[in-house]
Computed example of a mutant assay.
Amino acid sequence: MSRSRSRAWAELLRLPALFTVPGDALSGAAAVGARPNSRTLLAIGSSLCLYEAGMALNDWADRAEDAAERPHRPLPSGRVHPAAAFTAACALTGAGLALAARAGRPALTVAAPLAATVWAYDLALKHTPCGPVAMATARALDLVLGAAATTGRTRAALPSAALLGTHTLAVTVVSRQETKGGSPLAPLAALTTTALLSRLLAHRPTGLPSDRPSGAGPGDADGVATATSRRSVMSGSLPAIAEPAAAGRERPEPAHARRITPPRSADSAWSPGRALTTALAATYAATAARPYFHATLNPSPPLTQRAVGGGIRATIPLQAALSARSGAGLTALLIAGLAPLGRRFGRKVSVT
């Protein structure tokens, strides 16, 4: 394949946007309190295929509109044949479903409606009022796919999926006027949504430990006490309650046995996990808010396109913040590391 042909396909598939995809499955796994495993990798592969299928199908469906508004795109410029784009969309969809099936029945149960949503958006819903909702649903399902593939459970991932879907909804609404410009209401609404999501990210979900022990799930807070009691019984020693004190006499607790427990609010406010979540939420807000603000002041096509690009790039710190909020700090840092790669490749190929 020649260099010019390779670049045409890179533009068609919007390759820099691929760096926003792995974080869906990874944050989905974090939301259900699981470490990424081989099935998570299969979910990531499935997501990448379905995402690229949507990109190819999008340009195939919009080839007539792009001929008038964006003639430089690969299909209207003749650099990629429409039949080749449609064939790629079909092949990538099949590959995405096959990878989901390898990850297990729960993953396929989520991937099938995800693929259907992608095709419905590109072929029927994109230019209707349901378009942004369909796109938001697809992104939310992609996060749930990671949870389903990793553990088979999805309920705990729904709040994170809702936050990611809300962000996607705002970006999609702005993107509907990126070629012609329009009202400042869409970027203003997206700016408000970004501020709201940033605030929600800063609040840890109720009942989630601030620092999850290695190998412990969200519900294992009592595991240490249980294990200590079990070890005392197995070693032949009795718990303290089995040794009654003399009648009328109290035994003071030894100084070395006393535990000073700080207030819970202070612990959660200064924990490393909370600090990481706050930093990533601030990064998300900074990435999306500035281009949204500029598009609000001047909703011209160039500034609107920058706002859409900023919203897409902000997906990565949002995914990282969701993972940190779920207690998966290492996963959050891994996702955040994809942002510089996305920016680097985004200088060569547009993400919109």
Rank of each mutant, 00 (worst) to 15 (best):
A91T: 07
A91C: 14
A91K: 00
L92T: 10
L92D: 05
T93F: 03
T93S: 10
G94R: 12
A95C: 14
A95M: 09
G96S: 05
G96Q: 11
G96V: 12
L97S: 06
A100F: 07
A100H: 08
A101T: 15
A101C: 14
A101M: 01
R102Y: 13
A103C: 13
A103F: 00
G104N: 09
G104H: 13
R105N: 08
R105V: 13
R105H: 08
P106M: 00
P106Q: 03
L108A: 08
L108W: 08
L108C: 03
T109W: 15
A111M: 04
A111W: 02
P113T: 00
P113S: 05
L114P: 01
A116F: 09
T117E: 03
T117Q: 05
T117Y: 03
V118K: 04
V118F: 09
V118A: 02
V118M: 05
V118G: 08
V118S: 10
W119P: 07
Y121W: 03
Y121S: 04
Y121M: 07
D122P: 11
L123P: 04
L123W: 03
L123H: 00
A124Y: 10
A124I: 01
A124V: 08
L125Y: 00
L125N: 06
L125T: 05
K126Y: 06
K126W: 09
T128I: 00
P129D: 14
P129S: 05
P129H: 01
P129L: 02
C130V: 01
C130R: 13
C130Q: 09
C130Y: 03
G131S: 07
G131V: 05
P132G: 13
P132N: 04
V133G: 00
A134V: 11
M135I: 14
A136D: 14
A136G: 15
A136T: 15
T137V: 11
T137C: 13
A138V: 14
A138N: 02
A138T: 06
R139T: 13
R139Y: 00
R139G: 10
R139A: 10
A140L: 03
A140Y: 13
A140T: 14
L141W: 14
D142T: 15
D142Y: 02
D142C: 15
D142E: 12
D142V: 09
D142N: 15
D142K: 12
L143M: 11
L143V: 01
V144I: 14
V144K: 06
L145T: 05
G146V: 06
A148D: 09
A149D: 04
A149P: 04
A149L: 00
A149T: 10
T150W: 00
T150E: 03
T151C: 02
T151V: 03
T151F: 06
T151N: 09
G152S: 02
R153E: 15
R153F: 09
T154N: 04
R155K: 07
R155V: 08
R155Q: 11
A157H: 01
A157F: 05
A157I: 02
A157Y: 06
A157M: 01
L158K: 08
